[in-house]
Amino acid sequence: MDGRPAEPRSWAIRGTGSYLPDQRVSSDDLSRAMGLDPGWIEGRTGIRHRHVAAPRQAASDLAAAAARRALADAGLEPGDIGLIVLGTSTPDELGPSTACRVQAVLGATRAAAFDVAAACTGFVYGLQAAVGWLSTQRGAPPHVLVIGVEVYSKFLNTGDRATAALFGDGAAAAVVGPAAPPYGITSMALGADGTRAGDVLIPAGGSRMPAGPGTLAALGHTIHMDGRAVRRFIVDILPKVVAEAADSGGVKPRDLALVVPHQPNPKLVASLAADAGLDPAQMVIAGQDVGNIGAASLPYALDKVARTRGIEEGELVLLAGFGAGLTWGHALIMWPPPQDRMAA
């Protein structure tokens, strides 16, 4: 210690990566298998394809592949990571955390690891945990892997068009590390309404309804969803999250360069741009080729736009998450310059 004050730090996304399983299923083929007209699913959701994990692929396999790509994008190695936070509703096991499985696969021996169970808002909840840890940790590597991953295909009732038409498998990750102010994550907020936990859930397999012959016969280990209630929630919450995030950042929705939302139904989410005070060009919609991949949906869209359009220094990027629980949250980011993203 030399008595000088520490340099001010903020925290930014320094690299992104994603992974999709090899098998791709078209909405036309799925519609036919469900006895529907070929264009039924795409016409109502905008989803053209979704990816399906191989029989022996688990959440940690997809997550580790996405994490490796995010590390490469950030120019880092697994040993540079001090924490792994993983959001999922479809873990490898009920315990231990899937994050610990990923830590072992990566060889990130210096990293602590845990899961967050916030459904499709899991990536935003994970970012909040990452920033809190980075702001208080001492002596550990100042970089966090935040991962969202789902293998929903293993938890679907293929006869239920409300869920089978929407969900897919995939993973996406981001590396969070130091940045020089004013760049980085400028505001965050989380929310929940547990009175509506029954709107979307996998009812069996936990301590309330342990697995048994009865739960298997009743398809209790598959996703159950009240489609109308979920649709009302999406229509209501996305404009609110955008308004609250803009207000917290002292900006107007039109000042946002990009809004990256969770997109369980890409067509529905894209249609809400005007209600949120946005131009459609501000919305990053990437779910048409992956479907609803839950906690991976938002970071997948972020990775895709970062690798295609690119994100310029100083652009304001809003991450807007919402999902089962019910949960929601946002992260507002002033994107750092390339050299700052690569700084140690």
Score class of each variant (00 low, 15 high):
A6L: 13
R9M: 07
R14W: 03
G17K: 05
S18K: 06
S18Y: 11
P21Q: 02
D22P: 15
R24D: 02
L36T: 00
W40N: 00
I41K: 00
G43D: 00
G46S: 03
I47Y: 00
H51S: 10
H51F: 02
A58M: 04
A59R: 05
S60V: 10
D61S: 05
A63F: 07
A67I: 06
R68F: 07
A72K: 10
G75A: 11
L76C: 10
L83K: 11
I84C: 12
I84M: 14
V85F: 13
T90I: 11
D92C: 15
L94H: 06
P96Y: 15
A104R: 14
V105I: 15
G107T: 09
A111S: 09
F114W: 08
D115L: 14
A117V: 15
A118G: 13
A130K: 01
W133F: 13
L134I: 04
L134D: 08
L134G: 05
G148N: 12
V149F: 10
V151L: 04
L156S: 08
L166I: 14
F167P: 13
G168Q: 11
A172G: 07
A172S: 10
V175A: 07
P178N: 09
A179D: 05
Y183D: 15
I185R: 08
I185L: 13
L190Y: 01
L190K: 00
G194A: 15
D199C: 02
L201Y: 04
L201D: 11
I202P: 02
R208W: 05
A211Q: 06
L219I: 05
I223C: 07
M225T: 01
R228N: 02
V230M: 03
I234K: 00
A257F: 12
V260A: 02
V260Y: 03
K267H: 05
A270R: 13
A270Q: 13
L278E: 09
D279C: 12
D279Q: 13
P280E: 06
M283W: 04
V284G: 07
G291N: 08
I293F: 10
G294R: 08
A296Y: 14
A301Y: 07
K304L: 15
V305D: 03
R309S: 15
G314F: 05
E315W: 05
E315N: 06
V317K: 02
A320R: 11
A320Y: 06
G325P: 01
W328Y: 11
A331E: 14
I333R: 14
P338F: 03
P338H: 09
Q339T: 14
Q339L: 13
Q339R: 14
A344W: 10
A344D: 14
